[in-house]
Structures are given as C-alpha cells and as structure tokens.
C-alpha cells in the first residue's frame, strides 16, 4: 500500500468538508474493496475519509413499506434485520450472500454501490427494486445511478448517505458464484414493484449491472419462471473471462432469473 493520510469524519458535513480539502482523497466506508485495492497498489488515494463513525448514516428505518438503509450500514445488519425480512426478504438474502461473514461485518451498502463493481450484488438489488440513492446533495434513481463499470452518477466529492425503496409486492434474488472469488458470476434480482416488474442482472454485463426488458415484459404478463423459458438472452453484451464465456453467462442469466422468480413465490 502506498502512503496515505487517515481522517475520521464525525458527521456528513465534516466528511464532505474533509473530502473537498483533499482532492486526491477517497471516502472510506467498510473498506472491503478499497483497502484490498490499495493493498495491491491499484489505488493510491492521498487521504482516506472514514465514514463508519457517523451515526446518522447507519441503520435501517422502516415506515410502513418505505425502507431507508443508511449508507454505512453493514451487510450483516441488513441480512439479519427481522423488520426488513418481514417486508422484503430478498434484499436480506442478497446481503447475506455478499462476500463472507467477516466481510459482511465491515462492508456497507453505501460503499458497495459507490464502487459499483460489475460483480457486486447490491447494484442488482437496488436496480431491481427501483430504489433511490440519497446523497449529501440530492436523490438519484437507481436507473440513473449505475452508469458503467465501476462508474456511477456521483459527482466529485458527492457522498451516499442512504438508500430508500418501497418494499416490493414480491422479489427474489438468485446468484451463481464465481468458483474462485465468490463474487456473482451472474446474479439476478427480480421484483414485482408498484412501478411494475423489474429484473436486474449483475456479474454478467460487459458494462455492469443492467435491466432485462425481455424478462420484464414476459413476467408482466405471467409472473412465473416458465414465462422466461422462451425469452432470448443476447450474449453479445455479456462479459467473458476464464471462468465463464458469454454464452455460458447468457445461460446463467436465464437460469438465475428463473430461480429468482421462483424464490420470490
């Protein structure tokens, strides 16, 4: 790891101020990706602004069917929330399969989505739920937030403070692990929301997480795994690597989509 300077923010305002004072700095949440990347000397922020000690952005709040998850909430808390599981078990299941138990104790939803790893789970969850990302300065719909591989709509210095969504009528998540890294080689989140059917795919797209309109249309007329059987998955926009070529990923996208729908009930 290259040398860096650490700052612990006490509030959102404090964090944003620290960030603006250190242009080459980065926000640090759980650090499960950022620290690992820095260790490999693939990232070299001059400063780190630690967000884990800001009480206002930590925790899960549920009002009726409206869910707000603070950006610094660890995956383990989301996975274990009984209140959340009562209205949206799929997001708990998704969080419970990120990384491993130790990673889930540190890694946070805000850190995960701000990084937007193409094989991360949360981007599929948020896109599938039609969630809204709240920052220190505005609200961004998930459709607009994830813009490409490790790319988001966040501006320089902008900080995620929470994620909100309406609990869906039904939702399911199915993930096929990369055999080595255990990241999603393909993960599909399917949801029946107030705004319609949404199916989001992670781990497979060459440009990161994406929605699958073909699946959504098929499920709109018939919410069942079988409805997807004859929907084509275009392999040409999918990732290819030594673990899975695009053709195999296309197959996994369909199989996981069916399983996501099946698990949603």
């Amino acid at each position: 790891m290259y040398a860096t300077s650490y700052h612990r923010a006490s509030s959102v305002e404090d964090a944003v101020k620290l960030k603006s004072a250190n242009e080459e700095g980065r926000y640090l949440s759980g650090g499960m990706t950022l620290i690992a990347t820095m260790k490999q000397r693939l990232a070299a922020p001059s400063d780190l602004i630690d967000l884990r000690h800001i009480p206002a952005i930590r925790g899960i709040r549920i009002e009726g069917r409206k869910v707000t998850i603070g950006a610094a909430t660890p995956h383990a808390d989301v996975a274990a929330s009984r209140e959340l599981a009562a209205i949206c078990p799929a997001i708990c299941k998704l969080a419970g399969h990120i990384g491993d138990p130790h990673v889930r104790h540190m890694g946070t939803i805000g850190g995960s989505i701000a990084n937007n790893d193409p094989a991360a789970d949360y981007p599929a969850g948020l896109l599938g739920l039609g969630a809204t990302v709240v920052t220190d300065r505005r609200s961004i719909s998930a459709d607009d937030f994830f813009t490409g591989l490790f790319e988001t709509a966040l501006e320089e210095g902008e900080m995620v403070t929470s994620v909100t969504f309406e609990a869906p009528e039904k939702a399911g998540y199915a993930k096929f692990n990369n055999p080595a890294s255990r990241f999603a080689m393909t993960g599909v989140f399917a949801a029946k929301t107030a705004g319609g059917i949404r199916v989001a795919v992670t781990g497979a797209g060459a440009s990161g997480v994406f929605r699958h309109p073909g699946f959504e249309q098929a499920l709109a007329s018939n919410w069942s795994p079988d409805a997807l059987s004859n929907v084509a998955v275009d392999a040409s926009n999918l990732m290819a690597d030594m673990h899975a070529n695009a053709e195999y990923r296309a197959n996994l996208v369909k199989v996981m989509a069916k399983r996501a729908v099946a698990s949603a009930g």
């Binding site: 650090g31 690992a36 630690d50 491993d100 990673v103 104790h105």
Partner: peptide, 27 residues
C-alpha cells in the same frame, strides 16, 4: 493472502469477526 479471502487474519472487533488484513490500524 492479499485479497481478503483466506481468513487466517480473522479477529473479533467490537464483538464481530472481521478480517484484520483489510482494516487499517487507524480505522
């Protein structure tokens, strides 16, 4: 390992298991 995977470094921090290879001491 260098990639937060092997778990040889697991300790408990504030009552929870964490990978001490992926946390800064200052954190």
């Amino acid at each position: 390992c260098d990639t937060t995977q092997c778990g040889a470094c697991v300790i408990h921090m504030d009552g929870h298991s964490v990978k001490s290879c992926s946390i800064l001491a200052v954190q």
